[in-house]
Simulated assay, not measured.
Amino acid sequence: MYRSQISGLGKYVPENVVTNDDLAQIMETSDEWIQERTGIKERRHIKKGSEDTTAVMGFKAAQVALERANIDKNDIDLIVFATLSPDYYFPGCGVQIQDMLNISTCPALDVRNQCSGFVYALSVADQYIKTGMYENILVIGSENHSGGLDMTTRGRNVSVLFGDGAGAAVLSRSKDKHTGILSTHLHSEGKFAEELSLIGPSTKYWVPEIIKDNPQDNIPYYPYMNGQLVFKNAVVRFSEVIHEGLAHNDLSLEDIDMFIPHQANLRIAQFIQKKFKLSNDQVHNNIQKYGNTTAASIPIALTEAWENNKVQKNDTVVLAAFGSGFTWASAIIKW
Rank of each mutant, 00 (worst) to 15 (best):
R43P: 07
Y134M: 10
E51Y: 12
E254W: 04
S324Y: 04
F322H: 12
D176W: 11
P220M: 00
L171Y: 05
S188G: 12
M27C: 09
D31E: 08
H262L: 07
K47L: 13
T38G: 09
S172P: 04
D281P: 07
N214G: 03
V80M: 02
H187F: 08
P261M: 03
A168R: 11
G8L: 05
V18K: 05
G245Q: 03
N233I: 01
S172I: 02
I71W: 01
F326D: 06
S123T: 14
A305K: 08
R3P: 01
S104Y: 09
K277C: 12
A321S: 15
Q216I: 12
K277V: 12
T303L: 02
R37Q: 10
K274L: 11
K191Y: 09
V318R: 10
Q282N: 15
V111D: 01
G92P: 07
V56W: 09
K60A: 01
S188W: 03
S159R: 06
G10A: 03
K11N: 13
I256N: 10
L229S: 13
S252Q: 14
E194K: 13
L101H: 10
I199A: 12
G245L: 01
A320R: 07
T54V: 03
N157V: 04
K310R: 15
H45P: 00
P86C: 02
D255R: 00
N218I: 00
A69E: 00
K48Q: 14
I219F: 05
F231T: 02
I298Q: 07
M1R: 12
S252N: 14
G94H: 03
A62D: 01
I40D: 02
M100P: 00
W306T: 15
I219V: 14
Q25R: 15
L23N: 04
N309L: 08
Q35G: 00
G200N: 03
L266F: 08
Y120W: 10
E307R: 13
F192V: 00
V119W: 06
Q96M: 12
G163E: 06
K232L: 04
I219G: 01
A301D: 08
A65R: 04
V80K: 02
P261R: 02
G148A: 11
I76V: 14
V207M: 03
F162A: 08
F81R: 06
V160N: 06
R37S: 08
S183F: 11
V317Y: 05
V318C: 13
V230F: 04
S159D: 02
L78V: 03
I298K: 08
N314R: 14
V13C: 13
I97T: 05
K191W: 00
M27Q: 08
N309T: 10
Q263I: 06
G245E: 02
E195V: 01
N20C: 09
L66S: 03
G58F: 02
V13A: 04
G10P: 06
V236C: 06
L302W: 14
